[in-house]
Design a protein around this nucleic acid. Structure first.
Lengths: 329, 329
DNA sequence: ATGAAAGCGCTAACAA
DNA sequence: TTGTTAGCGCTTTCAT
């Protein structure tokens, strides 16, 4: 910028004015400055700018489990779109759902003075984040509510979604319904399990612990769990898979075993229609978008009490949960 | 940091020493400083640090078409992993394959003084980037080579992959093979088309322009193209789909029309095995990883001539390209 | 309409 | 072992 000023034969401040399109610069002068800027290929240093200016690095942070998981990728895309329309860029980090990684990531983001944070929290307490919030960091929680502090969040109605999935299976004649999910320490899984159990109870059916497999972390683990279930003396006749990873694993296992069990998965996924998989799902795009809106409102000065936005998942019947196997249209 | 110094009763520089774990601080002093840091919840301002220190904001930028596309998401994940193991974070931006958006994104990243850039370039000339490169910005191109400048790149052998896909179909008795892809202005598509044409020619078959549909940008467009092809007087008996989006569209259209055409797609995708889709694909994870390695080597001072790394795609036969429809294992 | 000086939070270079 | 000074590139405040 100093170089630009020198070439244009003006002071540093005048260049700053031109760059920021402030008023009070004679057109002729501005012209000269612009020419110098082009000649040098000058780009304002945003780091220096936000250092001086105090707040506003025009950068927001997003912490998710894994960008390679389409559910998270959709969230990331929605947040990015909102951010860019407001002139901000997005730093995305994958925590692998591990608390220590999440904490490290948040640290790296805060150290770079992001204006705000969107976080899909890993299991565990987040009291340590309360400290940051108290210090003025704006955080919005996605998919799972914060544990140990009050803050904005956008979540799905997981209990309702789980109940709907299982009711659907029951309505189609399935009786022994298994549930496959990640560890119940993950908030969403616990809630979906609660919905599962509630639906069974209201139908007067027992909640058989042998049919609950809440430990697999990935598709392979889910497939293994299904194989085990199939060897039970009284195997299940249907499965409720708690998220997209689980559903993929269940599909593989069922196909390999040529076992025509009923199936409803939580979360939609590409090609689910071709595979005829019935799902209960909410919109990741909407979750990311609403979360970003919430965050930018806070950054804009909104200081109303923390809000929790609950999105309702919907059931999409495609054949796998309806007993009579239908060819998808 | 000044506050920390005050509370600990030391000078600013001493705090800096402790924060950077430089030598020459008495343990007792360091202890006091650490206590003050904890008390205040102090975090070093990385922006100020890199402003002073000149280079190294420990941030790299990645420009891709769309994070929500699993192919790009895999690249992003691989880059992120490499970046973090080196203490850097990743700013990811989606260009939607539009040149103007790409340019805007690169501008936003450069303005934030990222240490380096990984770019999957949209179609068009990139001479404007040459200017930046000349100025010392490190850029590595992914998936498509740069046009209009010399720089490191990691690409697939697209011609070879396209040829292999079509040879495979020919070997299994298909004769009229259509090709569906994005616009040939996209480098990868043009190359894959060349491979397609080469395979036909070496088999002594004509390259029928009516069977080439190189205009759809998304899955829906690809599906439309297939529907059109099926109404031809002499419809194709097989399709080569040029990327994962196209393959998805083709699958939908073929399934809807109950048309058992042969199909080989470029790029692998989740559940392709369950759908029995034969693909030719390279590893997005390897592409991202190798690209990141290249970039970090440059950032580390490597100034050898620009390199181009070519990854070979492999063919995975799953049924859709082998005439005799096989149940996947 | 333009410029000079101070300072954002930090580190490099040099004292003490 | 510790502190002082200067300055990274910019914006703010106050002059001119």
């Amino acid at each position: 910028m100093r170089d630009v000023a020198e070439i244009a034969g003006v002071s540093l401040k005048t260049v700053s004015r031109v760059v920021n399109t402030e008023a009070g610069v004679r057109p002729a002068t501005a012209e000269r400055v612009d020419a110098a800027i082009r000649q040098l290929g000058f780009r304002r240093n945003e780091l220096a700018r936000s250092l001086r200016h105090g707040r506003a690095s025009a950068t927001v942070g997003l912490v998710i489990g894994d960008v390679a998981n389409p559910f998270y990728a959709s969230i990331a895309r929605a947040v990015e779109t909102r951010a860019r329309s407001g002139g901000s860029v997005l730093i995305t980090g994958s925590s692998d759902e591990v608390g220590s990684q999440e904490r490290e990531l948040v640290g790296m983001l805060l150290t770079r003075r992001v204006d705000g944070l969107l976080v899909v929290p890993a299991a565990g307490d987040h009291g340590w984040l309360a400290e940051e919030v108290r210090r003025g960091v704006h955080i919005v929680f996605l998919d799972r509510p914060p544990h140990g502090l009050v803050a904005d969040s956008v979540v799905f109605d997981n209990v309702g979604g789980g109940r709907r999935a299982v009711r659907h299976l029951l309505a189609h004649g399935y009786q022994r319904i298994a549930i496959i999910g990640d560890a119940p320490s993950v908030h969403t899984i616990r809630e979906r399990y609660d919905g599962y159990a509630a639906a069974l109870k209201e139908a007067g059916l027992p909640v058989d612990p042998r049919l609950a497999r809440l430990s697999p972390h990935d598709a392979e683990g889910a497939a293994r769990a299904v194989r085990e279930l199939l060897t039970l003396p009284e195997p299940p006749d249907a499965v409720f898979a708690c998220n997209n990873r689980m559903t993929v694993g269940v599909l593989h296992a069922l196909r390999a075993a040529r076992a025509p069990l009923g199936l409803v998965g939580f979360d939609d996924f590409e090609l689910a229609d071709l595979l005829g998989v019935t799902v209960v799902s909410g919109s990741a795009v909407e979750m990311g978008g609403r979360g970003a809106d919430l965050l930018f409102a806070r950054l804009g000065g909104d200081d109303r009490p923390a809000r929790r936005i609950v999105l309702s998942p919907t059931l999409v019947a495609r054949g796998s949960g309806e007993r009579v196997s239908e060819e998808p249209a």
